[in-house]
Design a protein around this nucleic acid. Structure first.
Lengths: 163, 163
DNA sequence: GTTGAAACCTCAGATCC
DNA sequence: GGATCTGAGGTTTCAAC
């Protein structure tokens, strides 16, 4: 699938405002509603747009604590890596799990309602998990920037689908 | 603002599908459309819902590289911390910037089109930035879990707005 | 093959109860 | 919170370029 200038505009606008109406979107990209909607559907079907999500304020909703946990495992065999991923996938407070290169095997983003609850998650679900060698955690003091997704230059960017 | 069971359902559903229509949403939470819409607007006005965003597949759109950068500064004076935050806010490839406690001052999530381009961002915008003492980077091999926001238990959770 | 125009039908939003 | 109504938006069909 090839992505042209208009598709990039659509992606950029929907990344910024996922509930923009189709007629608004069409107007901004210089199309009428039907072809615009077809492009959006095509981007969804191709997997370029994975979904749409409300962006909630964690702190206001009872989750003021965000922690990054750097996890090292004893074994880096694929089945042990997968087992760890499966393990944290089942912990709702673990919001992200990325496998890294280097000394640290995984970085996790964890949210919690308070420090006590975080400590509990750590000591009952993370540290004692199979194959875990070490867990180093850092509390988030404040978040200066938090944009999901990717930068989308108005024009002349990369982006062709299918790697 | 007090959040009840129905509000939590609304938040959970919109976090999962930000483009769900109001009538769908109303039906699922057991309301008719108008009161449901009033609740959604109230949650938006209270800041519980900050916005709605399309979730794009970075890799399919030409950004296969995600890197975490751990940054330490020479000075942790507030004005120096803010200056660094302002500096990275202007770099579009830096998607997240969190201030941490401990030895590492900031963790950044950076996306890039390729390794060469990442290296260029690092050496021209990050390492030589004022007050930067050290930058350690780790490439993301794969992302096993990536959910924005917070866990929302169907019932009996915390969550009242205004801390 | 993609756009645009028109039709239809559902939804959003306001008002009132 | 629910019922009703109106105008706007979403979606399909079809013709034109």
């Amino acid at each position: 699938m090839a992505i042209d200038r208009i598709d990039r505009q659509i992606l950029s606008l929907l990344q910024d405002n996922g509930r923009m109406t189709n007629v608004d979107l069409a107007e901004r990209v210089g199309l009428t509603a039907p072809p615009c909607l077809r492009r959006v559907r095509a981007l969804e079907d191709a997997g370029a747009i994975r979904g749409y999500h409300a962006d909630l304020d964690a702190a206001r909703l009872g989750y003021p604590i965000t922690v990054f946990a750097m996890v090292s495992l004893r074994s880096q065999a694929e089945r042990d890596l997968s087992a760890f991923e499966d393990h944290v996938a089942a912990i709702p407070e673990v919001r992200e799990c990325h496998m890294l290169n280097g000394e640290i095997d995984f970085i996790l983003k964890i949210v919690a309602t308070d420090l006590k609850s975080f400590q509990e998650i750590l000591t009952t679900h993370l540290t004692p998990a199979p194959n875990v060698a070490s867990v180093k955690t850092s509390l988030t003091i404040r978040t200066a920037k938090s944009r999901s997704g990717i930068p989308i230059p108005a024009d002349g960017s990369p982006a062709g689908i299918g790697h």
